[in-house]
Amino acid sequence: MTHLQFNLDMDLLKESVMNSNIDAVVRSAIVLVLNEFMEKERDDFLNAAAYERSAERRDYRNGFYDRELTMSIGKLKLKVPRTRNGEFSTSVFEKYARCDQALVLSMLEMVINGVSTRKVTHIVEQLCGESISKSFVSSLTQKLDPIVNDWAKRPLNVMYFPYVFVDAMYIKVREHHRVVSKAVYIATAISEKNKREILGLSVDHVENYESWSQFFQQLKSRGLQSPNLVISDAHLGLQKAIQREFIGTSWQRCNVHFKRNIIETIPKKDSEEFRVMLKRVFEAVTIEDIRKFKDELMTRFSEDNKYEKALGILDEGFEDTIQYMNFPEKIRSH
């Protein structure tokens, strides 16, 4: 196996990593994998590596041409190898469609967990449908490692993040020949320039106080300062971890989760008036109006047993959910 040459725009990659543009990081990694796989295909077609003298050579290299590949994460510009006689044709553009989702999810998992030889093998085998050499996987892994690690370990003390959102999602992972559920912790922030940025991700077996605390400690070890406001759902372990790790920080119950909790308890039919009034509550501009609209909603449906649970949730979590009203109006929509 020959040494693989990577055609990667390092300035663009560095900018993407430093700006925590996770989509760009994943896209760069996918472009790297696809370009190197196509180069390997050309080597196999020619029966000769670059600059290699061989009696078995079928043809000669003739540079590359650019071609776009549309995937679920957008358009990728690939460098497609070509040969002098034009007989070589890559299989990438025929095969990518059936593994598009698996490829993107694998790359995202790599960003979260770090690059492993097993994961790269899985990605490329999804792409080409056949076994690949260990040397090829090893070479890819060495080049992907910095892309993932530089993003995941970048310092967070270069700017202040006044507003931080934290949430967990659950994914199915094959581990030791079993499929298990794992929690992916995600922290997103809004900078003082109102720019949204992903701070970090982490995977754990459970969602509890200890695991959330460890995640926050990792972010703080990279320089994250206590924000003005942390927004999350009402998970008790998460709330406790926020209070413990970010002294002096206000907590807001996530507006989206809160409204979903309320809507889930009301009838699907004949509830349009309730939904409209609830929407009006959280579209209010002043603190006086938001409390007024909430009281009007409570009064309007207080005698209707169908909305008893919804009103209970609204009343209990209302003050925690409107903490954003204590901040400038221009930032509230974020």
Rank of each mutant, 00 (worst) to 15 (best):
E52T: 13
Q101N: 13
R61C: 15
A97G: 09
E39I: 00
P328I: 04
V137N: 03
E56C: 11
S89D: 08
A50T: 14
V111T: 07
K40R: 06
F37V: 08
L8K: 01
L76G: 03
C128V: 08
K294T: 06
V281M: 06
K14C: 02
R291M: 11
L199D: 07
R291I: 12
A29T: 00
S106M: 08
K75F: 08
Q243T: 12
V124A: 03
D43W: 00
G248N: 06
N113Y: 10
R57H: 10
H177A: 06
H177L: 11
L12R: 07
F45C: 03
T249D: 04
N62R: 04
N208S: 08
I262T: 06
K172E: 14
F301C: 07
I313S: 09
R154E: 02
T321K: 02
I287A: 11
S131D: 12
N35C: 05
D11F: 14
M277L: 14
R67D: 05
L12A: 09
K119F: 10
M325S: 05
N19W: 00
E109I: 00
N305P: 09
L278V: 07
K292Q: 12
M107D: 04
K153R: 11
N19M: 08
I290K: 00
K172N: 10
F274R: 01
E94R: 02
T2C: 15
Y163D: 03
L78V: 02
S250D: 15
L127E: 06
K193R: 01
V17F: 03
A24L: 13
M10S: 07
K75T: 10
S191R: 00
H205G: 14
P162I: 03
K259E: 13
K40Y: 09
G74P: 11
K119N: 09
M169S: 12
R57T: 09
G200Y: 06
E192Q: 12
L229M: 07
N35D: 13
A152S: 14
E296Y: 06
S333N: 11
F293A: 11
P146E: 01
V137M: 03
V26H: 04
C254P: 06
V166L: 05
R42T: 13
V124N: 02
E36A: 14
F258I: 04
I190M: 12
V179L: 13
L229W: 07
R332C: 11
K259Q: 14
S135A: 14
F216E: 02
L229S: 06
F88T: 03
D315Q: 12
T249N: 06
F136N: 03
